[in-house]
């Protein structure tokens, strides 16, 4: 239902956003050209990946939205390859979101007592979960867990060492590694 309601305004909202956001005129021109000559094709490509035309329309929309938030001109020699690359990222976010939502629902079911946050609370929680998950993506699970024990659950360094069966200095190293990636999107060895 949601997908359906988003489908109709998709075209007008892209056009509107392109004119209302502070985009440089040449960038706006480039984007609307990219859109008009490739949107049908891109939607078709997404459809083959998703098997659902409503979701394909949604994600096609997301792909162009992502381009709208960029500020510099894009060097597009191969528009299809370029759009596929961006759309792949959108697809992966979409799948990860479904995974996270499932994991969240599973975790909720395991709660000892009846714990039922309101839908809007769940939504906000999920948004934050996705954001942090994305920031920590690519780190080894044990590094993620050290970070989450410390920053989310407030465990002491030596409790974390015990839980993860690693040394105190390793805990410290993991916390720095996770912190640098999470706060600054940088990888350190």
């Amino acid at each position: 239902m949601l997908a359906q309601s988003l489908l109709a305004p998709e075209l007008s909202s892209i056009a509107k956003l392109a004119t209302t956001t502070k985009l440089a005129p040449d960038l706006r021109e480039q984007l609307s050209q990219l859109y008009s000559s490739n949107q049908a094709w891109l939607k078709g490509w997404l459809h083959t990946k998703l098997g659902c035309s409503y979701r394909a329309a949604d994600l096609m929309h997301d792909t162009f939205m992502r381009l709208l938030t960029r500020e510099e001109l894009i060097q597009v020699k191969e528009p299809k390859a370029f759009l596929t690359t961006v759309a792949k990222r959108v697809l992966i976010d979409h799948w990860r979101r479904e995974q996270i939502e499932q994991a969240y629902q599973a975790a909720l079911m395991q709660m000892p007592e009846l714990y039922a946050p309101a839908p809007e609370e769940q939504y906000l929680f999920l948004e934050s979960l996705l954001a942090i998950d994305k920031l920590l993506d690519g780190l080894p699970v044990v590094v993620k867990r050290a970070f989450l024990y410390f920053q989310l659950e407030g465990l002491k360094q030596h409790d974390i060492a015990e839980k993860l069966n690693i040394s105190l200095s390793t805990v410290k190293r993991y916390l720095v590694q996770a912190g640098v990636q999470c706060y600054f999107a940088k990888q350190i060895d």
């Binding site: 929680f125 934050s128 993620k144 920053q151 989310l152």
Partner: peptide, 19 residues
């Protein structure tokens, strides 16, 4: 954002989900 996840009762759900 982390503080939003660390509210009482929900932090280990967040932990479990992400890891």
């Amino acid at each position: 954002q982390l503080a939003c996840l660390a509210q009482s009762g929900t932090s280990h759900i967040a932990h479990q989900t992400i890891s």
